[in-house]
Structures are given as structure tokens and as C-alpha cells.
Amino acid sequence: MKVTVKMCGLRSEDDVASLRNLPVQFAGFVLAPSKRKITINTLCKLKTLLPHCVTPVAVMVNPTQKEVDDVIDRAGVTTLQLHGDESPDWCRALRKRHGSIALIKALAARGKETVEQMATYGDIVDTFLIDTYQPDARGGTGKTFRWEDIPAYLEAAREVRKPLWIAGGLTPENVQQLLTRYRPDGVDVSSGVEKNGVKSAERMQQFVQRVRAI
């Protein structure tokens, strides 16, 4: 099994440069309120520096239609990670407006409630991402959730034939444990490859090496 890897929260040319020669499929750029937030202009610039094999992802929380249009039309980024309360109907309308987009729907890990949510998005989104629930934050918390619930999330994703990625507190030190026990389709890391709040090329490399060693 080849696990998909997404490095998230990239903010600088140095961050993007650290992806060179790493077998990473996706690079996440946060456009929502966060210490890792960048502007649309920065996204436009950093996107051009990515290796051709890496897909840029715009991470958004409850975006307006104009914000989505800017990401797609100005930045040319057509893979969106929706990390807010975007409803199935909202996502369906977005896909109708922009037919070529790929949607990653992030859901907070809340057990049965999350499993039920996944069923309502199954015919709309392309990928599910399960992240740690925290009332005052939308990802990037550096905290794990109850991994014992992952089999239920995997089953829900399989029922609608969509891949499942796991986020929330992943690090080079624990990612092999996650992959060995639960076998998700992908992993998403941000704070776990940082030192003092800044992306670390060394930790990014360690993370990917340990994923690929499985």
C-alpha cells in the first residue's frame, strides 16, 4: 500500500524547497485564520515553486464564494480542503459551479457523529480527512484523537468508495504506529514537522522516510 502524504501549513519558499526530492503528493496552504495563514498572493507565488508532482491544496474554513473563486481563478488551485461547517448542499453547489475541482472534506473526530456525517458527503467529496476535534481550533492543534475509532471511519469511507486520510498530532515518532495498526489511505502533517513553529526540513524528511518504510 502506498500511503498518500500531505504536508500542510507551508508558508515560505524555504518550506516549499524542503519538499524537493521528497515523495509527497500534496502540499497544503492555509487560507483560514491560523498562525499558518498565508494570503492569496503568497499562494500564487508559492504554487509556482512546487515540484510538478506535488498538488497544491487550499485549506479553507467556511469560505465565501468569492474566496473560492479567487483561489480557483487567480491562483489556479483546484484542490480544496474544506475544514469548516460547509454543508453537503453547499459542497454540491460549489462542485456545480466549479466542475473540475477536487474536494477534501475535513471532519472532526467525534466517533459515531462523524461516521454519520461521512454518509451525507459520500457522493460529493473526493476524499475524507479526519482531524482532532477541538472547540477553538480547526486543525493544526498538534493533538491526536482516539485512534481506536479509525476502523469505523475507514468502514464509512469504504462504503462510499472514498479514501480516508488521518491528521491530528502526527509526527515522525508516531506515524509508523498509526499506519501499522490502522492502514489509512493517507496522512496529513503540519505541526509535527515543525521546530519552534517553523517547518523543519529534517523532520519533514524523517516523516516521509518513516511513512515509506511501512
Rank of each mutant, 00 (worst) to 15 (best):
K2W: 07
G9V: 00
L10S: 01
R11P: 02
D14A: 15
S18M: 04
N21D: 13
P23Y: 04
P23N: 10
P23E: 07
A27N: 03
F29Y: 12
R36F: 11
T39F: 14
T39A: 09
T39R: 13
N41S: 15
C44M: 13
K45D: 04
T48H: 14
L50A: 04
P51W: 00
H52M: 09
T55W: 07
T55Q: 09
T55S: 12
P56G: 05
A58D: 10
V59I: 14
V59Q: 06
V61W: 13
T64S: 15
T64C: 03
Q65F: 11
K66R: 14
D69H: 12
D70S: 13
I72M: 08
T78R: 06
T79E: 03
L80I: 09
D85R: 03
R97D: 06
A102M: 09
A102R: 05
I104W: 13
I104K: 04
A108G: 10
R110F: 01
T127N: 05
F128H: 03
D131K: 08
T132I: 10
Q134S: 12
A137M: 15
A137E: 14
W147V: 06
W147Y: 13
E148R: 11
V160A: 09
R161V: 10
R161G: 04
R161E: 13
I166V: 15
A167N: 11
A167L: 12
G169S: 07
L170K: 04
P172L: 03
N174S: 06
V175D: 06
Q177S: 11
L178A: 03
R181L: 11
P184M: 02
K195G: 06
N196S: 11
G197P: 08
S200N: 03
Q205W: 01
V208E: 00
Q209L: 04
Q209H: 10
